[in-house]
Design a protein around this nucleic acid. Structure first.
Lengths: 303, 303
DNA sequence: GCTGCTCATAAACCCAGCTTATGACGGCAT
DNA sequence: ATGCCGTCATAAGCTGGGTTTATGAGCAGC
């Protein structure tokens, strides 16, 4: 069994995966090579070594082209998901770097910067190629300060209200969900859990003062108020990790747990009659709507 | 602007991303290095070259450890998504390879193999480490044949009914959705579209005979029947690509378009009063429920 | 001040992947 | 048939990124 070496030794590198996608598109190693900016022998060798590494034949070579095998098609689909994640990474990283000479300066709260913005940036690049974007992530008041100080053209916040001095529109909704590891008592229950029981149970939470925590506090105030947390952690990731490992129930944005829910590493616990939604807003200094690149981005995010 | 070179030159490789995640976990380059199986200088150099590549400082070095910068935390979160996609790839690829001496032989339909199975395999590896799984992807009748021929221990199918000779349980639901590019006429409408209008409009579809097509045909038979397709394509991916590029409305599994919907490359068009759901089932030869590894996997997939 | 940890630097090494050059094979038109 | 186009494969040589080992330097706490 070959399953303890690091991932990077068992998964082909990004270049190889891109090449595989190009082969799937073009039906030819040579043309895929050209698109990827390498020579045909390099492509041939790279695909071959990928097949050796995976232990599976990926393409059927023939004198008039190369088509994917059945296994190859499946592998290619899985590869596409890695490449898409890499594209999101790249879009985000580029915005983080471009700081200075950017045409569009965005300030966003963490949740939005983490989960939504990379996708928007990819869409923006598609709609308006060449728009240089810079990104600054921070909490609501930091976003407001940047906008009012003229250091950002467009902001995104996730608070309950629009900060003083800003106008905004709702661009998406985020819902807080109660989640546990699949083995937890709540995960086995048939019906939903009562709000009062949630409030009375020690939970894994972000630290006091975080946006998540505020929404939760106010929603459960009517049901007896929150019990002392089981754990108070500084990042969404840490909360998620604790929940997955079975430490207890956690409350997290549905954006943060979508993947874990799909793969059943976490299970959503329905809570009776409580709506833990919060609005995600685009914001700008009070006055006319943004124009230029900011307007373009805004257009992409509207439902 | 540095945006035409291939992705692999602008995104750090998997090894570097894994190292970054390890640094985030351990708060120390040295310990991260050890976990990743390299030496401390190698880790130092690799993180440094990643910072150079991205043009952003990722970690704050201090004599008593290394913590992520704000930008570093964001980058790490994006990196985590790449690594998770790579883990799914690895789980799938390993199953594709292990063909022979496996303790659990799974046969699954394409949609399930593509979108759900890798996640299940990761969960299975976590719950029962060392279970060697082999995967064979094919349509419903191929899955049935494997099971009845004793060449597979557990199957997953997405048809309307359970194939002859098999027992099964529903493990998930899949819903077909009508989607268009954001610029399409239907995407701008306020309310839902009438089923009859969908039926009368030329759509981008999978070829006749595919599971998707069957469900759609039968659901819209009562509303005048499907018009001639605008395009008939052989793979989900091709349909998606055509829809994203604005060729017209397409009908696809919600599993297939989740990512595109989130990033607004596609928009879901609600259709009035038609439920295009189909059941995803685990199946096995008629008789007692599977035992052993198959039972373990089955347990993971139940809602 | 010593000892522990941290990270950085330097020099030598090694291998993966690249390029260029060439060959082999099959289809298709002449 | 023959020759030409495309396909992919093989071979030889180069290059560079990432690795190791060895060492140095900074700060903390006993």
């Amino acid at each position: 069994m070959s399953s303890d070496a690091p991932l990077s030794h068992r998964v082909p590198d990004l270049g190889a995966l891109e090449l595989l996608l190009a082969v799937a598109r073009h039906g030819s190693l040579g043309r895929a090579a050209k698109e990827t900016g390498i020579t045909q022998p390099a492509a041939s060798s790279r695909i071959r070594s990928m097949e050796r590494q995976l232990g599976v034949a990926l393409v059927d070579r023939s004198p008039r082209g190369s088509r994917l095998t059945d296994a190859g098609a499946l592998v290619t689909d899985w590869a596409r998901r890695i490449v898409e994640a890499a594209e999101a990474f790249d879009a985000g990283a580029q915005a983080l770097r471009d700081r200075r000479d950017s045409r569009l300066r965005v300030a966003a709260s963490m949740t939005i910067a983490e989960y939504l913005l990379p996708g928007w940036l990819i869409a923006l690049r598609q709609a308006r190629p060449g728009t240089a974007v810079s990104l600054l992530a921070g909490n609501s008041s930091a976003v407001a300060a940047r906008l009012l100080g003229g250091e950002a053209d467009l902001g995104f916040v996730e608070g309950l209200a629009v900060p003083e001095g800003l106008d905004g529109v709702v661009v998406a909704h985020d819902r807080l969900t109660v989640v546990t590891a699949p083995g937890h008592r709540w995960a086995r229950r048939r019906g939903p859990v009562a709000p009062a029981e949630v409030a009375a149970t020690p939970l894994i939470l972000r630290e006091r003062g975080s946006g998540t925590r505020q929404v939760l506090d106010s929603a459960l105030a009517a049901h007896g108020g929150l019990a002392e947390p089981l754990l108070e952690l500084a990042s969404t990731t840490a909360v998620k990790a604790a929940a997955v490992s079975g430490a207890g129930p956690a409350v997290l944005s549905e954006l943060a747990v979508a993947e874990e829910l799909a793969s059943r590493r976490l299970v959503e616990i329905p809570v009776e009659g409580v709506r833990l939604t919060r609005d995600l807003r685009a914001v700008w200094p009070t006055g006319p709507r943004p124009t230029g690149p900011a307007r373009d981005l805004l257009a992409l995010t509207r439902t």
